[in-house]
Simulated assay, not measured.
Amino acid sequence: MTLMTVERIKLFSTRSPWWCMIITVALTVGLTAIFSAATKPDDLSDLTPSVTQFAYNFGLVVMMVMAALTVTTEYRFGTIRSTFLAVPGRTQALLAKTAVVAGLAGVVGEITAVGSWAIAKAIRPDAPLALDTGQEFRNVFGVGLIYLLAAVFAIGLALLIRHTAGAIVVMLVYLFLAESLLPAIPRIGPHIQDWMPFIVGNNFVVAGQLETDDGPPVIEGLPFGPWGSLLYFAAVCFGLLALGLISAKRRDA
């Protein structure tokens, strides 16, 4: 608990996490508010709980950048050395950091998801935004779990790369290009894409959603159902974190 308290103090003593949280909430909730206000009265039937989460990936990227920065800035300024000198095991210190940062990301994810749904309901009270099914609850409340696990992924990647620019560039290229361009590879591309972590993780939120819905994109034929997708995504994220922890133990700080 002492390690987690230290990591919490370190996290909130800098401005970047606060800015990242503000940008995440403002971006996702703001875009949903604009979309809801722009929806014509005749199209209110299309404004569903899943549609209110169409912008969650924008906030997800910001929180992943924040998670990566919590690691790379410590390596950049050398403060990680003080941490490793004060704590007998590097793994315990890094796990405490992961718990604090991922927990914060999960909370922010829930705030953005519920906030997006709530503001859409406030702007368009006549829209069909009631949460009546398990799929609709996952559309909204499942977003926080994806944020939490994505932060774990970002920390693992940052431990492997260590440099801020390198970690962020690799992360953004992977998120915006690598997974989405795989179908361009003849024959095997679409099959490989079905196993990509963020494609599968997104399935936890959108499984059961209609393809014609304007919410987060749906990819048919994935190997797992919603909860299997979440477990697979978690396994990949924690696997990358494990590689990062091994790297941190073997390399000089």
Rank of each mutant, 00 (worst) to 15 (best):
T83N: 10
V87W: 03
P223C: 09
R138S: 02
A93P: 08
V200R: 07
V218T: 07
V173E: 00
L243S: 00
P41E: 06
I161D: 03
F84G: 12
G103L: 04
A68Y: 10
K249A: 15
G225K: 11
A234N: 08
A37W: 15
F238S: 01
D252L: 12
F176N: 14
A167V: 05
N139G: 09
Q135L: 02
A167E: 11
P125H: 05
G228V: 04
T24K: 03
A122D: 02
G134P: 12
G221R: 14
G142R: 11
P226D: 08
N202H: 05
F35H: 14
A235R: 13
E220W: 01
L159P: 06
T24S: 11
D132T: 13
V173I: 11
A99G: 05
A253C: 12
T70S: 11
F233R: 03
D126G: 02
H163T: 13
I192L: 15
V101Y: 03
A154D: 06
L44T: 02
C237Q: 01
A118R: 09
L157P: 00
I9L: 11
R15P: 08
F12K: 12
K249N: 14
R76P: 01
I123G: 04
D213M: 10
L3P: 01
D43P: 10
V206P: 04
V51F: 15
G201H: 04
L240D: 02
I185Q: 09
I80A: 02
I123K: 06
L175I: 09
T133L: 04
Q92A: 15
Q209I: 11
G134K: 13
T14G: 12
S180T: 14
R76F: 02
F224V: 06
A55L: 09
M21R: 10
A93S: 15
I22M: 13
G78A: 09
Q135F: 00
T28Y: 03
G201R: 07
V152R: 09
G189A: 10
T24A: 11
V61L: 14
E110V: 15
A99T: 14
L222Q: 11
F141C: 03
A86R: 05
L177P: 12
I9T: 12
V218R: 11
P216L: 10
V29T: 07
V170T: 13
E74Q: 14
M4W: 13
Q209E: 12
T14F: 11
E211A: 14
S50C: 03
M196G: 04
A55V: 06
R187N: 05
V61T: 14
L245Q: 07
F204I: 04
L47D: 08
W117V: 03
A127D: 02
P223G: 07
A67T: 07
S180H: 06
T52D: 00
L149V: 12
V100P: 00
A86C: 06
L175F: 12
G78L: 07
D214K: 13
T52I: 12
P128A: 04
Y56G: 01
T79N: 04
S36Q: 13
G109W: 04
D214Q: 12
G134R: 13
A253W: 10
A67I: 09
T14K: 15
L11I: 10
V206L: 01
V25Q: 08
G228H: 09
K10L: 01
R187M: 05
V29H: 09
T164C: 08
K40V: 00
K97Q: 15
G166M: 07
T48D: 03
I161Y: 02
F224H: 09
V218G: 08
T32P: 01
R76D: 05
R81S: 05
